[in-house]
């Protein structure tokens, strides 16, 4: 325990980096999920096709491979990114592809009648989407998005392999400098667990708020 106390700043720095990467990558993933998920439902075939290729490629390749590809290969094309930027990009793009399927299925689960009613009320397509369909789809997306964010938090551990000083990296550093194994790794596992609990809690709250005023008692 004293080891953990002495190393608290090292661990906190790691936790901070893990949280920063998780948040930034989640924002990117959310943006990608919405654009690709909506693009999958577009009436233009080319747009659907591009979204499909993005989703299949980023879901089909192991994240670590994507991370290494961006870290090692992009410099050969004269694209030089900070390791943390690479980390956020790779994790955001990969999880965005998973999120796109969540967005697509939630949007398609909104009853057709809602669109027809909006059409009858003379809403434009864009208005229908943003005022009618998306607000009803969001409560359906929240639980799977909560799970996805936990998965995202977990995969941020991989960024330690491209030299980013996150929680996992600090655990390995502590293991090498103190020759202790159980203490640093247990501390870091608990750290991830606590962050995951916070994420779960936030999503629970959001789900409760999003459920307000919806005529869907049996949603969950």
């Amino acid at each position: 325990m004293s080891l953990i106390y002495e190393a608290r700043w090292v661990l906190l720095e790691g936790a901070l980096n893990t949280i920063i990467i998780t948040l930034a990558a989640s924002l990117l993933a959310g943006a990608m999920a919405f654009s690709a998920g909506l693009a999958r439902l577009s009436s233009i075939a080319a747009v659907r096709c591009i979204a499909l290729v993005y989703i299949e490629v980023f879901r089909g390749v192991a994240l670590l491979v994507q991370l290494f590809w961006m870290f090692f290969v992009l410099p050969f094309f004269d694209i030089h990114l900070e390791p943390i930027t690479t980390a956020i990009l790779a994790i955001g793009l990969c999880n965005g592809a998973y999120g796109a399927e969540i967005v697509r299925s939630a949007i398609s689960a909104v009853p057709r009648g809602q669109r027809e009613a909006a059409c009858a009320l003379n809403y434009t397509r864009l208005q229908t989407l943003w005022r009618i369909v998306v607000p009803q789809a969001i409560p359906m997306m929240l639980p799977p998005f909560g799970n996805l964010m936990i998965e995202l938090l977990k995969v941020t551990a991989l960024v330690s392999l491209i030299t980013v000083h996150d929680l996992s990296f600090q655990a390995l550093t502590l293991q090498q400098t103190t020759m202790q194994t159980a203490a640093p790794f247990t501390a870091v596992l608990v750290g991830y667990f606590l962050i995951a609990l916070v994420i779960t809690g936030i999503f629970r709250l959001a789900e409760r708020r999003a459920g307000v005023g919806l005529d869907r008692g049996g949603l969950r």
Binding site: A157, S160, Q175, T181, F185, F193
Partner: peptide, 14 residues
């Protein structure tokens, strides 16, 4: 809710 990577480290080192 904890990363596979750290779990593998745990098994590998502990």
């Amino acid at each position: 809710s904890t990363p596979l990577l750290v779990q593998l480290y745990f098994l590998f080192f502990v």
